[in-house]
């Protein structure tokens, strides 16, 4: 990549990138510990952070596996993939910013996630957007993988995780990923309805399936654009 001039905008982008990467990397520890608690080995846990590298999808996969084991294989994979669809949308938005040859987009693809897209799109200039994307993505990739390994080793040493409340920590982790998205009536209605649907169906359907049916709430509400204030439409 060509040499970048350090302007105030690009320096601010680098600072934002490192702050976000540091904060988010910290919860790689909880992912590592919870993944081992859900029955994965340390290696499997690390492979997820290396190759899947998308927090929501990773937590979803281990969440569904924890509730149903290997018999929940299909819902676990579909759930992780559905949570990964938004990365595809981020990629569409990032594509003109990244530019360049195909191999650069291929590399960018792997680090196209919530955080890199958010930092990039918050920058004022095209150059700062590009820098924000790469700095956030690469530093978070390094940090997230290191903390995943640390968490997996700690989780492995802990043994019976319920005694330490790690099952409650998993629920709290999903709540933490959800919380910043509850910014209007529509997302709140979807969240509450999906939570109720998932709980009500749990006793009657195989593990992992209720969560996929809960996802249909989003398709219905989003498709018809329900629960939006008239003037906001």
């Amino acid at each position: 990549m060509r040499r970048v001039d350090r302007t105030p905008e690009t320096r601010a982008a680098i600072r934002a990138s490192l702050a976000v990467a540091l904060a988010v990397s910290l919860y790689g520890v909880s992912f590592g510990a919870l993944a081992v608690a859900s029955g994965l080995t340390i290696w499997q846990t690390c492979v997820l952070s290396l190759f899947m590298f998308s927090g929501g999808s990773q937590f979803a996969l281990i969440g569904v596996l924890a509730s149903g084991g290997a018999s929940a294989a299909l819902p676990a994979i579909v759930g992780a993939a559905l949570l990964g669809t938004r990365n595809g949308l981020y990629a569409i938005r990032m594509s003109p910013i990244i530019g360049g040859p195909w191999w650069r987009k291929l590399l960018a693809g792997h680090i196209t996630i919530d955080e890199s897209t958010a930092v990039a799109t918050a920058q004022p200039t095209r150059e700062a957007q590009r820098i924000g994307f790469w700095w956030t993505g690469i530093s978070l990739f390094v940090g997230w993988n290191l903390t995943t390994l640390i968490g997996a080793i700690i989780g492995n040493a802990l043994g019976d995780v319920r005694q330490y409340g790690l099952d409650a920590a998993a629920a709290a982790a999903f709540l933490g990923l959800l919380w910043p998205r509850l910014t209007a009536l529509q997302p709140v209605v979807v969240a509450v309805a999906a939570a109720v649907v998932a709980a009500v169906l749990t006793p009657t359907l195989p593990a992992g399936v209720p969560i996929l049916i809960a996802a249909l709430v989003a398709v219905v509400v989003g498709g018809f654009n329900l629960f939006v204030k008239r003037e906001a439409k």
Binding site: G56, L83, A171, F174, V190, A194, A195, V197, A218, G222
Partner: peptide, 17 residues
């Protein structure tokens, strides 16, 4: 729909966990 899909899945996972 993609944004709401993320919300629905996360909320469902909170509830089941």
């Amino acid at each position: 729909i993609t944004a709401l899909l993320t919300i629905a899945l996360l909320a469902g996972l909170v509830s089941i966990e």
